[in-house]
Amino acid sequence: MTIEPTSTVITVSVVVPVYSGERYIEKLIGEIEAVRNAWAASGRPFFLSEVVLVDDCARDGSPEIIDRLAAKHAWVTALHLGRNSGQHAATAAGILYTSGDWVVTLDEDLQHPPSRIVDLLRTAAERSSDIVYANAQGRIHSAFRDFASRSYKRLICWLANSPHAVHFNSFRLMRGPVARAASSVCSYDTYFDVALSWFTGRVGSVEMTLTDERFQHSKSSGYSLLRLLSHARKLLFSNQLKVLRLGTGIGIAIVAASALLAAWVLLAKLINPSVFPIQGWTSLMLTTMFLGGLILLMLGIVLEYMSVLILRAHGRPLYFVIDRSSDAVLRGHFADAGP
């Protein structure tokens, strides 16, 4: 079936990073094709224009399947990375090959149903969001892993002042320009969702029940513990953390306290020279407190500078302009379509 987008239709691109998906990709593409055909048949103002399958140096027979699918469907693009770069790098690479007004990222293993893309789009249109995450309900992996993941994200929310970190999920809908801009600036160690948050604050989420088929079948996930830890490290270091500012604050407080204490010690010594019986205690105490505070303050300033430089190296922009003018078409459509 050949479907051509018109120049006015809103286009949606799908990106799927693939690492060990030989059992799932064909079925996934089948589901995406069903959604694509259903959208086109029902005359919706949006169109699923392309799917980019990114072979992240897959460890199974996925690359051949990807090539076969790309040869079969003109709307499927196969992309092969030279080495295993990780899910976020593969996602960014795939996004840079899209041209859709909106970009959706899905996992390879069918845990993200393509039929729910429309719900993400509806939320984006109704709330003028630039990013909409699937907010996973229920148990996806093991109870411990789900708990650890949620707790860590909450910690990052607090540490990094990033209220949306708790929603971070690889099933996400992004405004095309935002997704491509974030992918352009992502460097080696940047956590992709953190990069997205530099470009917009309008982030929404849709609650949905997601199940990891791979985990249900094999009790193993596509991620090893080491990979999860590396993921967690990236998330931590891509953010500008409160603790750095805390260090500077503590330094300033100690310098101020030592100045006050110094004044009191000096005054006490002048008024009553025998108040401190040990010779030299006063000057030693004053010097230690002042220098300790000063060192902490300087360290805080250095860390602050470093965090600015690191964010610059990660590619954080000063500002970003977003055009949301096409949202009215989507809003109109969803208002007519009802809940």
Binding site: T77, L96, Y97, S99, P177, R180, A181, S183, S184
Partner: peptide
């Protein structure tokens, strides 16, 4: 090239 590229990406 078959690769859509934003101006921002070129600038980067």
């Amino acid at each position: 090239s078959g690769k859509p590229t934003s101006v921002l990406e070129v600038v980067r």
